[in-house]
Amino acid sequence: MALAQLTDSALPTGAFAHSLGFEGYIERELVLDEGSFAVWLGAFIGQQLTYSDGLAVRFLYEGVDVLELDALLSACLLPRQVREASVKMGTRLLEIGAEVFPSAELELYRDLVTTGRAAGHQPLAFAVVARSLGVPLQEALAAHLFATVTSLTQNAVRAIPLGQNAGQRLLRKAADDVAAAVERIPHLTPDDFGAVSPGLEISQMRHERQRARMFMS
């Protein structure tokens, strides 16, 4: 039940305000309907969610120091808006976690953030809370990735726009991509961390200079 609450789309982390780059593709008319968004979402799952978020969650579960992982994420998330989005949502999740899912591990990471020694990235905040709750790694990976996909799909339904049924079809298809990512992540190495397509990162960087936009990233 705690994991369901932690990954609920109604959890007030501010995810509704971020496109994590797909709005730039809408502006360039590369994403304009259900099919084209499905292509973008599949690429995003297979790239950024796998090689940044997913690996960060796995490494924290395996005992890598949270301060080291926090610094690596700050370095690997090259687009400023995406890096700031991760920190904004992560900081909010740390605040929520401190109230409803308190633990010594969470308090340690939160202290590092409040004292300026760490940024407070969302996947690490999630992983700290999930591990303290005793959630197994595979379940934590699937939950985090699918929660991110759900937020992005809900935002795409508003922005493109798409119908609600289209959103549900997209989520069903994305579930297979998430499952594939969860299977792949345990076999990756530290050298794979942050290996994201330059095209995706360039599009995310262009977003902050876009003429008009709905989202913060």
Rank of each mutant, 00 (worst) to 15 (best):
L6K: 13
L141N: 03
S19H: 09
P123A: 05
R58M: 12
D8M: 06
A174C: 08
R184H: 09
V135E: 00
V178R: 11
T115Y: 06
L170I: 14
L106W: 06
S86T: 07
L133G: 07
V129P: 01
P198K: 13
V149A: 06
G24E: 12
V87E: 01
I96E: 00
D53I: 01
A140W: 02
M205C: 11
S103N: 08
W40V: 05
G46A: 14
L73C: 04
V129T: 11
R58N: 04
L141H: 02
A142S: 13
E27M: 10
Y109E: 04
G54Y: 00
A179E: 14
V157Y: 00
I185V: 15
A104V: 15
G116S: 09
A142F: 04
F101A: 10
Q48I: 01
P190A: 06
P190V: 02
I26F: 08
F37N: 02
Q122R: 12
G163M: 02
M1I: 04
L106A: 05
E68W: 01
V128H: 02
L171M: 12
R92Y: 01
L188I: 12
L141C: 07
F146E: 00
E27Y: 15
Q168N: 11
W40N: 05
Q138H: 14
R184F: 00
D176L: 15
R117Y: 09
S203F: 12
K173V: 14
A179T: 14
E208C: 08
F44N: 05
T13G: 07
P186G: 10
V66C: 02
A98I: 02
L3C: 11
A181I: 11
P161K: 06
R213S: 15
G116R: 07
L32P: 00
I160P: 05
D33S: 09
Q154L: 15
P102I: 09
V113M: 06
D111F: 03
R158L: 10
R117T: 05
A118Y: 03
P136N: 03
A175V: 08
S52Q: 14
S132Q: 04
Q138R: 15
P198N: 13
A104T: 15
V39S: 12
A71M: 04
G90H: 01
E84Y: 04
E95V: 04
D176R: 15
A195S: 15
V39D: 12
V66M: 10
V82M: 08
A147T: 08
A159K: 05
V87Y: 00
E27G: 11
V182C: 13
I96H: 02
L69W: 02
R213L: 14
G97N: 04
S217I: 06
S151P: 03
E99Q: 15
H207G: 13
L200T: 08
P136C: 06
Y109N: 02
T115I: 03
L124V: 05
L67N: 00
E99W: 07
L11M: 14
L78K: 14
R211I: 13
H144G: 12
E208D: 11
S203W: 08
E62N: 07
L124M: 07
G90T: 00
W40H: 08
V157R: 04
L41I: 10
H121L: 01
L152Q: 07
Q48S: 12
T189C: 10
P161W: 05
D70T: 03
V39W: 07
Y61H: 06
P186C: 09
L152M: 07
R110L: 10
R209C: 05
A140D: 02
G63M: 10
S19G: 13
P186K: 14
D176A: 15
T50E: 07
